[in-house]
């Protein structure tokens, strides 16, 4: 009884605090959503006011057409999904091996991966571009996907390495006794890494979804291969910017990302914070 009361008291304070700060926190977010329903002059003059005077859906229509979202939506989903799957695939495999096996060059690889994590790489797009060109993959979806999933991943590898390293050895022992092959053991262990998988999926999906440099640069000869983040730049003209169209475009394009977060949040709850529940 006393316990319950104490936690209820905590909740009153904490929830109040979280609601107030939370509102401030997502206020800019709401502001974008509502700005997409305003006229451009209202958006600039309304200050803090959220609700538009007249609800105007034309921004969405314009955003969809002008930013080519109907064409780009498919590309965006494809790029984000493919890059995420590849990222997951390569970083989990690499992390698994690094976490469980000792082999020549292992320390060097770990050291390099760690070091590059800390080096800011400025304007690497040019060398990447030359590489993709040399591979003959310019103006193909494959080139974009490759570049999207190639440039990141050091952190993810370290995440998986650490995870597999901390799995209890008895697990592997019993797998071995059961006669599981290398591949079968990996198949058994991978699902245990759900929290890491969730982290990779969310961060990688989010960053590829919003990435505009790579999809732009590697598809210059074929504009129909671009994604929505590139399309968003259609609102910036030579002399003026269509901010309300941009806001509408933003609203359209971030909703799927939030959905992904909602879906995978389950894994977060279990994986990242689950320990507390036990």
């Amino acid at each position: 009884m006393i316990r319950m009361n104490r936690f209820s008291r905590y909740n009153l304070i904490a929830v109040t605090l979280l609601v107030i700060i939370g509102f401030i926190w997502i206020y800019p977010f709401l502001w974008v959503m509502f700005a997409s329903l305003k006229t451009s002059s209202e958006m600039f003059s309304a200050g803090a006011t959220l609700l538009p005077e007249n609800w105007d859906l034309s921004n969405f229509v314009r955003a969809w057409d002008k930013a080519n979202f109907s064409t780009y939506f498919f590309n965006t989903v494809l790029y984000a999904a493919a890059a995420t799957v590849i990222e997951l695939f390569k970083s989990s495999m690499c992390g698994y091996v690094l976490g469980r096996y000792r082999f020549p060059g292992r320390n060097l690889l770990l050291g390099l991966v760690t070091a590059t994590l800390f080096i800011p790489i400025a304007s690497i797009i040019l060398p990447q571009f030359k590489l993709v060109q040399a591979l003959g993959l310019l103006n193909t979806r494959a080139g974009v996907i490759l570049a999207l999933s190639g440039g990141s991943g050091a952190l993810y590898v370290l995440l998986f390495t650490g995870f597999f390293q901390t799995l209890p050895d008895e697990l592997f022992e019993s797998a071995r006794i059961d006669g599981a092959t290398f591949w079968q053991t990996f198949r058994l262990m991978l699902p245990l890494a759900k929290p890491i998988i969730a982290t990779v999926v969310i961060f990688q999906f989010m960053s590829t979804w919003n990435e505009f440099n790579i999809p732009l640069v590697f598809t210059l000869g074929r504009p129909e291969l671009r994604n929505m983040a590139v399309g968003m730049y259609a609102f910036r003209g030579e002399f003026s910017v269509d901010w309300t169209g941009f806001a509408a475009g933003t609203t359209i394009s971030i909703i799927p990302v939030l959905l992904v977060f909602f879906v995978f949040q389950g894994y977060f709850v279990r994986g990242l914070a689950g320990a507390v529940k036990q």
């Binding site: 040019l126 060109q133 732009l216 000869g221 259609a234």
Partner: peptide, 21 residues
């Protein structure tokens, strides 16, 4: 006739020349 945002255009045009495209 393709249009790009000015910043992107300036960044990508040299790349297009580099690639012969």
């Amino acid at each position: 006739w393709d249009t790009l945002e000015q910043g992107q255009y300036r960044e990508t045009l040299p790349l297009m020349f580099q690639s012969g495209d």
